[in-house]
Every structure is written in C-alpha cells, then in structure tokens.
Amino acid sequence: MDLKRLPSPDDLLILLTVARLGRFNAVAETLGTTHTTISRRILALDKQLGGRTLERSPHGWELTELGSQAVAAAESIEGTLGLLAGRLSHSGDTLSGVVRISTPDGFGAEFVAPALVRLQRAHPLLNVELLSDTRKVSRNRSGVDLEVVVGNLEPGNAQPIFLSNYFLRLYASPSYARDHGLPETLDDVRQHGFVSYVESALKVEELGHRSTQLPVPRSSFQATSIFAQVEAVRRGAGIGLLPNFMVTRRTGLLPVLPHDFQRQLPIWAVARAESLRSAAVQAVLASLRSEIQDRGEDLGG
C-alpha cells in the first residue's frame, strides 16, 4: 500500500468539522486556526482523493458523494481517537473535542448551561462553546453543531427534535402595582408601560408584543436581552411579556391577568445529520432532555 496516496487523517477530521458546522470561519474558530488554512487543507484533501468533497450551496458548504464517503472514514478516526484519549486519561471516557451550541439567552442560562455543566463534569475531556442567539432555525449553515430555537419551524435541511413547550405570560413588580395599579382587562393594558423585545431586531415574531394582539401600551421598554427585560419589570418599568421559566420566586413578580392571556411556544433542538451522528451531540441532547424532565414544572407551570 502506498501511504503517500492515503488522505491525511487531520484533513479528514477537518472535513468532518466542516460537514457539521458548514462554515469555514466557524471551523477555524473551533480548531484555533484560520479560514485560509481550512480552505488549503480541504483543497489538499480533494487532491489526494481525486475529486471535490464539498460544494457550495445557497445555504453553505454541503458534502458531495465523495465527501460523504470521506466523512464516514473521518467518523471512524474520530471514534478511535476518542477511545485512545479515554485510555490515556485512565478514565475510559470517549467523549472529547468541542461541541458548539446556539441557544436563546434565557433558556440557555436556565436549562442549557446546567445541562452542559453536568455533562462536562462527567466528561472532562469535552469542551463546550455556548452562543446566545434568539432566532428561528437558520436556513443557512449556522456554524454550530446544535441549534436550540423557539417558535414554529419552517421546512429545512436540518432535523428538528422537540424538547418542550413553555409559556409567555404577563408580569409586573409589586412596586409597579402599588404605584400604577394593574389592568383589570386586556384592553386596560393600553394605559400602562410595557416591557418586551425590540420589535425591529426580533427574529422570532411570536416573542414580540405586536404578535399578541394586545393594545398599544402607553409607553414601552424594549430590550434584546431577556435578562434586561426581567430586570426592567422588576424595577417597575411596566408590565412585562416574559417566559414563565424566567419568573422565579427570587424575582418577586406578580402575574397579570393570568386567566385572560398566555402564549404557549415550543422549544426545539435542531441539527444536521452529520452532527446528530456525533457522540458529543447525542450526549448534549440526552443531558438537556434530562434537565428538562427534572424541571418540567418550571416550563409548564
């Protein structure tokens, strides 16, 4: 066998990472190198294999038939290296490498981060990158292994995995209720200040005030961060449209018209087929499902 004709294992693993993340920039960030280096290594791999492994689509880089065959080999190499890493660490742990996850900031902090911390304690060779972004499923290759998104899904190339439902409800602080009173009907909301997302920057319309059919409020406090919204409501800026899992005993907020208004939204995990074959991604999904199951009352309450 002519070893010079065999593809580089390093280049195969780079191709595997491109297949999962879909963007050279994201791959370069994950591997600690540059876009130019990733491009050069893919070109070298193509030359070794005698054909193109990737083709550009309107949504990002996609595998060719040859690329899919090369990725199958890369997955075998990855699995073998995982076994070796476990033996060298004397732990028998086969989960290693980097997993990148995109998630809305509130759900990410309350559910995804605890799930990942628990997972990382069990698998210390695993590295995690958590990106906060509240959006619908990206139609383009997103540069992450797993997207956590809210709201209704549009058809796409990635596989959606239902996680749970949660509720958006109206809340106010005790100080706001004391100083301004609380609405007795939904129409009375127009007489109050209102706290919600910045409508012009909102990527998931179901999270915004405009989609609720509630009347236009007297004034508004809008923020792209759900944590800023909770704090604004807590400090008396107005009535807030907040996820129920963000309103805990420590916030001390009061429900407003709980029998007249609520909105239920689904939460999904979305990944490409190449990512779903990753043991690390499967472990993340299992840990996240466990976190949701253990704290289901926080989402459904």
Score class of each variant (00 low, 15 high):
Leu3Tyr: 11
Ser8Phe: 14
Pro9Glu: 14
Asp10Arg: 00
Asp10Leu: 14
Asp11Thr: 01
Thr17Gln: 12
Ala28Glu: 15
Thr34Leu: 15
Ser39Lys: 08
Leu43Cys: 11
Lys47Ser: 09
Lys47Leu: 15
Arg56Ala: 09
Gly60Asp: 02
Trp61Ala: 14
Glu65Trp: 08
Ala70Gly: 05
Val71Cys: 14
Glu75Thr: 10
Thr80Ser: 11
Thr80Phe: 03
Leu84Asp: 13
Gly86Ile: 12
Gly92Cys: 06
Asp105Phe: 04
Gly106Thr: 13
Glu110Asn: 14
Pro114Ile: 13
Leu116His: 01
Pro124Asn: 03
Thr134Pro: 09
Arg135Cys: 01
Ser142Lys: 02
Gly143Phe: 04
Glu154Pro: 04
Pro155Trp: 03
Gly156Lys: 04
Phe162Asp: 12
Leu163Asp: 12
Leu168Lys: 02
Leu170Pro: 03
Ala172Thr: 05
Ser173Ile: 08
Ser175His: 03
Ser175Pro: 02
Arg178Ile: 11
His180Pro: 15
Glu184Phe: 03
Thr185Val: 15
Asp187Ala: 03
Asp188Val: 00
Arg190Leu: 00
Val195Gly: 07
Ser200Glu: 08
Lys203Cys: 07
His209Val: 01
Ala223Arg: 02
Thr224Lys: 01
Leu242Gly: 08
Leu242Asn: 04
Thr251Arg: 13
Pro255Val: 10
Leu257Trp: 03
Leu257Cys: 11
Asp260Ala: 04
Phe261Arg: 14
Gln262Glu: 11
Ala269Met: 11
Ala271Glu: 07
Ala273Trp: 01
Leu276His: 05
Leu276Val: 09
Val281Phe: 12
Val281Ser: 00
Ala286Lys: 11
Leu288Asn: 04
Ser290Tyr: 08
Gln293Trp: 04
